[in-house]
Simulated scan of single mutants.
Amino acid sequence: MNGSFHRITRQLAISLLAATSFGCEQADSVREYFRDPTPHEAYVLNLAHAGLSETALGQDWIRVSTDAVKRPLVMDAPYVEEGFFPPREPSALGYRFPLKRGQRLTVRIELESSETARLFVDLFRSAPDTMRAPVPVQSDEVVPGGANTTEMVFEPRRNGDYLLRIQPELLRGGRFTVVVEKEPAFEFPVAGRTHRSIGSFFGDPREAGRRRHHGVDIFAPRGTPVVASAEAYVSRVDTTPVGGRVIWLRDRQRNASIYYAHLNEILIREDAPVFPGDTIGRVGNTGNARTTPPHLHFGLYIRGEGPSDPWDYLFELPSELEPVQVELAELGDWVRITGREIYLRERPSRRGQVVAELP
């Protein structure tokens, strides 16, 4: 009965949102169809049960929630925004940005309100065509009586554009800060090095083109510490003619195996748990790398796919946030503006398109 209730309530909540935006869409998958409703969808359902979804205020709240997904601000991380949700006017934020498998997204939100307020945070994967609704992939909320901050961490399973919606409940608002950041999902496997030390790439030809390179080679002095790139356990340690001294880690979270080869020394045992940054060996050139400078061969094997390019799991992304360079003391207050050429732009940048000029 409870499962049936969830399916029915979810369909009702989605139909209320879809009526103003997406129309009748096919479900992305059977799993998507039968999932439990998100906090936002459950709130829409509660509005319907209370008779508020047919009121002008309720319809405005639903409309701005769908508009935030249909017409989001296009940006990329790192990104920071500070602003104000007016309590008497339904409002929502929407952002669209690219995200790759191998990257980790972190969204931090702080809400300063004089009243207890729920704040809904929803992440969607953009559909491959415009005829289908975005697919919810993760949801969170700031709840009354709890902390006024929330942090969402997400790793995508596929490359694509993603949509982030942030919306307070009806008749609630306040000052907000949104920070969106991306970083590689893996700890870099050679201590003190970055992706700039990679000298041979996934797919490079080997043996006069008879095979392809199933990993990346990270060059560093002999004896440089090699560290675990993820929380995992050691599934195998061995010495082989090709890889020399090798370590295999099993990463259950990502359903993947991680391969370290040509080690000068192994400092871990089989079945041992490891955490990002734990030293497990040292750089060398054992196996078929005896004639090359010391380096770590680092490979990633995803179950059901085989060898995968680890580049995006290791590539160091820009991380410095641009400071907010405007006066924030008046956020949420009415002010009188004097002067000419006061422009409103579609995004917080001088490069943003001008949408209006204040009289």
Rank of each mutant, 00 (worst) to 15 (best):
H6I: 00
T9K: 07
Q11P: 00
A13Q: 02
L17P: 00
L17S: 02
F34W: 12
T38F: 01
P39E: 01
N46E: 14
A50N: 03
E54Q: 10
L57G: 01
Q59S: 13
W61E: 03
I62P: 00
R63T: 11
S65P: 11
A68F: 06
V69K: 09
R71L: 03
P72V: 03
L73E: 13
L73P: 08
L73M: 15
E82Q: 15
R88K: 14
P90A: 04
P90V: 00
G94I: 02
R96S: 14
L99E: 06
E110P: 00
A117C: 05
V121W: 07
D122Q: 13
P144Y: 06
N148W: 14
N148G: 10
T150S: 13
F154W: 09
E155K: 05
R165G: 02
E169C: 05
R175M: 07
V190I: 05
R210Q: 15
R212I: 08
H214Y: 12
V226H: 15
V227T: 12
A230F: 04
E231N: 13
A232G: 01
T239E: 12
G244Q: 11
V246K: 13
I247E: 12
Q253V: 11
Q253L: 15
N255T: 10
I258C: 01
A261E: 15
D271M: 02
V274L: 10
P276R: 03
I280W: 11
V283I: 11
G284M: 04
N285T: 02
R290V: 15
T291K: 15
T292P: 05
H297E: 07
I302C: 01
L314E: 06
E316P: 04
E316W: 07
E322Q: 13
P323Q: 08
P323V: 04
G332I: 02
Y343I: 02
E346M: 10
R351Q: 15
